[in-house]
């Protein structure tokens, strides 16, 4: 079996770039479609947070909550998105950290920067993300996306869009 280090990161990086572009173009429903049925989206509120069950998190959405979040993002009276955020993601440094080729499961680490502009204010989010991916035909499904913001335990102004 090939070890993770032998695996070419390029197809995974292309997938991460696709994901980022769906977020930047506010195609949230298509973004949700990248997640497996049992997929989760997690943004811890602590560095090195062990799990989302014993401690508060900024986001911890399963598909049901993700759908509720996106219904709200598409709601005409979501005040915190009037006007909407504009975002630009930059994703890089992708590394396949773990791989199980037999099962088609991979853990891919990467670094990201997201700049958000809304209502005359611009701010920057940055951190490391880990995507647990499952091969799905020619592409992948996200089993878990974990986003570790470098300032995850700071006090934030309202955050409306996923990172």
């Amino acid at each position: 079996m090939a070890t993770a280090a032998d695996i070419d990161a390029a197809p995974f990086e292309r997938f991460l770039i696709l994901e980022a572009s769906l977020l930047d173009t506010r195609r949230f429903r298509e973004w949700m479609g990248l997640f497996a049925e049992d997929g989760t989206y997690w943004v811890p509120a602590l560095p090195d947070q062990e799990d989302p069950f014993g401690q508060a998190s900024l986001f911890y959405d399963d598909r049901d909550l993700m759908k509720t979040r996106i219904d709200r993002l598409e709601h005409p009276r979501i005040h915190v998105q009037t006007p909407p955020s504009r975002t630009a993601h930059l994703v890089g440094n992708a590394i396949v950290e773990e791989a199980d080729e037999a099962k088609g499961e991979y853990l891919v680490g990467s670094t990201f920067i997201m700049v958000e502009y809304r209502d005359d204010q611009q701010r920057v989010f940055a951190g490391h993300q880990r995507h647990r991916l499952r091969r799905d035909g020619a592409s992948f499904l996200i089993v878990q996306k974990r986003v570790d913001l470098i300032n995850c335990d700071s006090a934030f102004e309202a955050m409306a869009v996923p990172i």
Binding site: A56, L58, F59, L65, T68, E157, A158, M159, A160
Partner: peptide, 16 residues
């Protein structure tokens, strides 16, 4: 997380 985090469905509209 859903009602009162900085990224919640509820608190964010109050903050706005």
């Amino acid at each position: 997380n859903v009602t009162h985090s900085a990224a919640s469905f509820v608190q964010t509209d109050d903050l706005e």
